[in-house]
């Protein structure tokens, strides 16, 4: 009985993920689209809980909902007139978009299938060992340490660049006055 119950919850969650993703794409109101996306992210976190990877579930919420969704909402709300519902926001070239998305999906699935453990079930104890191993691999110089640091330097550069852009414009406006 508990297994069947879990199965039912899983199916329900899967429906929520797909449904909210579809609603996110088709919603007319941009804020609604963003909020549907948040629901979809949240359900994916639940999917991670099902797999027994609490770490990824929490990270999913922190990064995707806490950072990315809030950033998107901020961007939408600060953009002029984007909150008003206009006549037709539907994409003209739906078929081209579908083709592109389908291509990306195929490539992703093909690549993921080549990973040796794809499709195998992993026990919870294995997961508990894998998360620290991931952290060590990311920070160890012999493995991905250099790439990790490069990525952070790139982000720092983007941050400084954004500050510089904002700073310069403010100054120019001040001079005009």
């Amino acid at each position: 009985m508990p297994l069947n119950l879990l199965y039912a919850v899983f199916i329900f969650n899967a429906i929520v993920i797909l449904g909210s993703a579809i609603c996110s794409v088709t919603a007319r109101n941009l804020i609604h689209a963003a909020l549907w996306m948040v629901l979809s992210f949240f359900s994916i976190a639940i999917l991670f809980v099902f797999m027994g990877i609490g770490f990824f579930a929490v990270i999913q919420i922190t990064i995707y909902i806490g950072a990315i969704a809030v950033l998107i909402l901020f961007a939408i709300m600060l953009t002029r007139r984007s909150m008003q519902e206009q006549e037709d926001k539907r994409l003209k070239n739906v078929w081209v978009a579908l083709l592109a998305v389908g291509g990306v999906l195929t490539v992703l699935v093909m690549t993921l299938r080549q990973i040796p453990i794809f499709g195998e079930s992993i026990s919870t104890t294995q997961v508990d060992e894998m998360v620290p191993a991931l952290g060590k691999a990311l920070t160890e110089p012999a493995q991905y340490g250099l790439l990790f640091e490069l990525a952070s330097v790139l982000l720092l550069a983007a941050l400084i660049g954004a500050i510089y852009l904002a700073f310069d414009r403010k100054k120019a406006e001040g001079e005009e006055k």
Binding site: V38, V58, I61, I65, G66
Partner: peptide
């Protein structure tokens, strides 16, 4: 705790 706090902001 941090993740749940983010939900509050949203």
């Amino acid at each position: 705790i941090i993740a749940v706090g983010e939900l509050g902001i949203l």
